[in-house]
Design a protein around this nucleic acid. Structure first.
Lengths: 172, 172
DNA sequence: ATTTTATGTCAGCCTTGTTGACATATCTCA
DNA sequence: TGAGATATGTCAACAAGGCTGACATAAAAT
């Protein structure tokens, strides 16, 4: 079937062809790369009786101490019932703690505990080894390019939010 | 806590710091980008009563007509019971068909049907729009760089397999 | 002829998502 | 102050898509 498609380098057709020819290479690479990216933490999480859902919560709470439930729901885009299930376990096992808000006492502000931070860091380092290691043989500007590429894959409406979250956290 | 870490640009420490400082930016961008990357197909799959698991099967069968069950299991890395559940549905709804192997009659060779191919293509184009669109304002060599980056994120043991699968499919 | 391989299938369990309904405490605003 | 909005918690039920273990069959391989 690809045989029927004429040589690609005609400048007049460039834009249309992008719409027509699926980028199977990137689609599949993305799939496999992401799978391996999340697989590293899985083994360790198992030892603690946690899953990926716990990892996500722990990660974002570690990154943004004092995060509220509402903010976390907004980041994860799951229902409060789903969140509550894993959050409750993280709190019971003393990896996260929830304090009453000071200005608004309805809010719960989330913080990681000592061992919560240790685990979050351990998992982040594992993933870091893989995703920075992958840059090793590439040009020095590769990291900048990859991260600006990934940012552009994100929905335009969320980009600003993600940018604040990713590049603005920890400093606040 | 980041305050305790000394200024980063000392050349002697470069390598060690890579091991120590988690790449939160890439970790999070990867997370958000992948989420949006898979979200596009979800809406359409819903209309057919399919989920992501069906999408993956349909995709790889579309890409590699004549795929066997064993090969598919190897690509997806799930159990045959999990695969069978979604595969059965795809076959019942006439998106995929399974023919007896010719050389080895124990094997089942999988093929997409007409509507199976149409759906697979529709989904691939949706994802293509996003992941090629994200290249729009970047340098021309960005695509090559991103795809070689993603390849390097994949487990070294699988890289060759994935390369064959990604760059060698459809031609066979 | 026996064993191995490729696949199918039954039954049950887990994680993580969903919806809907309802409870409580606190804040906001008229 | 009092009514309503907001932030969170919780109960119950369900669905998708993973998993394990056990067992069945047909065909290939030895």
């Amino acid at each position: 079937m690809p045989d029927a498609i004429p040589a690609v380098h005609s400048p007049t057709l460039g834009k249309d062809l992008l719409d027509e020819l699926p980028a199977y290479d990137l689609i599949e690479l993305f799939f496999f790369a992401y799978r391996d990216f999340v697989s590293d933490p899985d083994r360790i999480l198992d030892e603690y009786g946690f899953g990926r859902a716990h990892h996500r919560v722990l990660h974002f709470v570690d990154r943004q101490p004092g995060l509220t439930i509402a903010e976390l729901l907004d980041i994860l885009r799951i229902t409060k019932q789903s969140l509550n299930r894993v959050l409750k376990e993280l709190i019971e096992k003393d990896f996260v703690e929830s304090r009453m808000g000071t200005s608004d006492r309805r809010q719960r502000l989330l913080y990681v505990t000592g061992q919560g931070h240790d685990l979050a860091l351990k998992l982040a380092k594992l993933q870091t080894r893989r995703i920075l290691g992958a840059l090793a043989d590439l040009e020095p500007e590769a990291k900048e390019l990859v991260s600006s590429y990934l940012l552009r894959v994100i929905d335009p409406d969320d980009r600003e939010h993600v940018e604040r979250l990713v590049f603005g956290a920890g400093k606040t």
